[in-house]
């Protein structure tokens, strides 16, 4: 059944990287431009979905040995814990703050705690979407 997938597989190998890069870009640019945790996470997971479509579940799982349930759980934990973090500084739950630094290579760069929170969101989305996809595919 797999003979006809050559074109799909070849294209996927390239496309997946483009999508992954785009996903990371979307995730990082979310602060000032369109993008953010949800979109980034969804785009990343769509790259994985493409991989699963082009190749079979077993070989992808062998190549990327990740437990996506754990990824999702870690994401949720990060999202909640960064919220807790602000409590340590005496502000309300989930308060975010940001600051700018001058770094040698990147120049003036902004850091925001919201990025940490968003990374939790993104990981959560990636984990959940792929968990759903993979469990259905494996249920044969």
């Amino acid at each position: 059944m797999r003979e006809n997938d050559i074109i799909l597989q070849t294209v996927s190998k390239v496309a997946v990287f483009i999508i992954l890069t785009f996903g990371v870009y979307l995730f990082l640019s979310g602060h000032h431009n369109p993008g953010g945790g949800f979109i980034g996470g969804l785009t990343l997971s769509s790259a994985f979905v493409l991989l699963y479509i082009a190749f079979d579940v077993e070989s992808v799982n062998a190549g990327i040995p990740l437990n996506y349930k754990m990824v999702a759980a870690v994401g949720v934990l990060i999202a909640i814990c960064t919220g807790m973090g602000s409590l340590l500084f005496g502000s309300a739950f989930l308060s975010q703050s940001s600051a700018y630094f001058n770094l040698p290579v990147f120049g003036k760069t902004g850091f925001a705690t919201v990025t940490l929170f968003e990374s939790g969101v993104a990981l959560g989305v990636v984990g959940v979407v792929i968990t759903i996809m993979v469990s259905i595919s494996e249920d044969v």
Binding site: F38, L42, V125, V128, V129, I132, S135, I136
Partner: peptide, 13 residues
């Protein structure tokens, strides 16, 4: 959007 995706997935399964 994201929630409705989750709900649809759950419904389907």
């Amino acid at each position: 959007i994201v929630i409705s995706f989750a709900v649809t997935a759950f419904f389907l399964v």
